[in-house]
Computed example of a mutant assay.
Amino acid sequence: MKPTKKTVEEAIQKVDRDRVAFGKHPDDGVPRIRTFEHQTERYPVLEIWAEAHRPPIDENVIDIDDAMSGLRDLGFDASQGYHDGALADQIGINLLRSTLSSPDEKLDMVDVQVLEGERVQRELSDIKRSKKIVAQAKARHKPVCWACNLDFGEKYGPLGVGYIECHHVDQLSGREGTNQITSVKDLALLCSNCHRMIHMKTPCLTVAELRDLIAEAERALIMKGTSGG
């Protein structure tokens, strides 16, 4: 099903939840991200448009101009509220560069001051999750990341003992309707980083795919080390 105003708003709410949970959006600081403005905040066009489909689709198959046109047709301010820069981090870097009197000046010498901390009230809808099934999954399995084998207790000592996150293999956000059954076998245990990385694609990666990416990255590091690069 093509995006509707409601599903776009739901996709925006998902990004808002990610920003609260992780401090910033995962695309923050990545160059060449097209964004649009909604209620004074900026959102990544391709991610929102992909997430707003039912079921969600891969953002890599979306034409940016079609997405912008679709957002405008649904009443969103996508005519002028976007840019070809990045999100917050990259925008800040570009603004810093524009203030430098010489291209040879170093960015780290610029003292940046901004106003922050204003409270903004928003109405958000969320997907109800069961703490009971999460607790059962954590009780059944050792609290070790299934993708990278991180044990928080070994990494952080007593502070991290027993900590692990639960990932729904069948994303709740992609399900139609309500009150659908979830069992322990539908959950995977992941560390915070792997949990974030597995959701970097829409639809999300499988645990096996993420494990393969980690192994590939580790092999590349080994090769780089042996080659002296």
Rank of each mutant, 00 (worst) to 15 (best):
R42D: 04
H38R: 09
H38F: 14
E51A: 15
E37G: 13
Q39A: 14
K24F: 07
R32V: 00
P31Y: 06
D28K: 04
Q39W: 00
H53S: 11
R34H: 06
A50S: 12
R32G: 02
I33Q: 07
H38S: 12
D28Y: 08
P44A: 08
A52M: 09
F22A: 04
E41G: 12
I33N: 03
I48F: 12
T40I: 03
H38G: 08
W49R: 12
I33P: 11
P44F: 11
H53Q: 12
T35M: 08
V45H: 11
W49E: 06
P31F: 08
Q39I: 05
W49A: 13
R32Y: 07
I33H: 02
R42N: 10
D27T: 02
E51F: 14
P31R: 04
H53V: 07
A52E: 03
H53K: 08
W49S: 12
Q39M: 12
F36C: 10
E37T: 14
K24A: 03
K24Y: 02
E41H: 14
F36N: 03
Y43K: 11
R32H: 11
E47Q: 15
W49N: 09
P31M: 03
L46I: 04
A52C: 12
Y43T: 07
V30C: 01
A52T: 04
G23Y: 02
G23E: 00
R34D: 01
G23F: 04
E37L: 15
Y43P: 15
R32D: 04
E41V: 10
P26F: 03
Q39D: 13
E37V: 13
E47V: 15
E37D: 08
R32C: 05
D27Q: 13
P44W: 07
I33F: 07
H38T: 01
D28V: 05
A52P: 14
R32I: 00
E37A: 14
P26C: 03
V30H: 06
T35P: 06
D28W: 07
R34N: 02
V30P: 02
T40Q: 08
A52K: 11
E41Y: 13
H38N: 11
V45E: 03
P31E: 00
H38M: 05
D27M: 14
I48V: 15
A52N: 08
E51V: 04
Q39N: 14
G23H: 03
E51D: 14
D27E: 05
L46V: 07
H53T: 05
H53M: 09
F22I: 00
W49K: 11
E37F: 07
G29T: 01
Q39H: 10
P31G: 06
L46F: 10
A52I: 05
Q39E: 13
R34C: 10
V30R: 10
G29V: 03
E51S: 15
D27H: 07
H53E: 08
T40D: 09
R34P: 11
G29F: 08
L46Y: 06
V45A: 10
F36V: 05
F22E: 00
E37Y: 05
I33V: 15
P26M: 01
E47R: 15
H53C: 13
P26V: 01
G23R: 03
T35V: 11
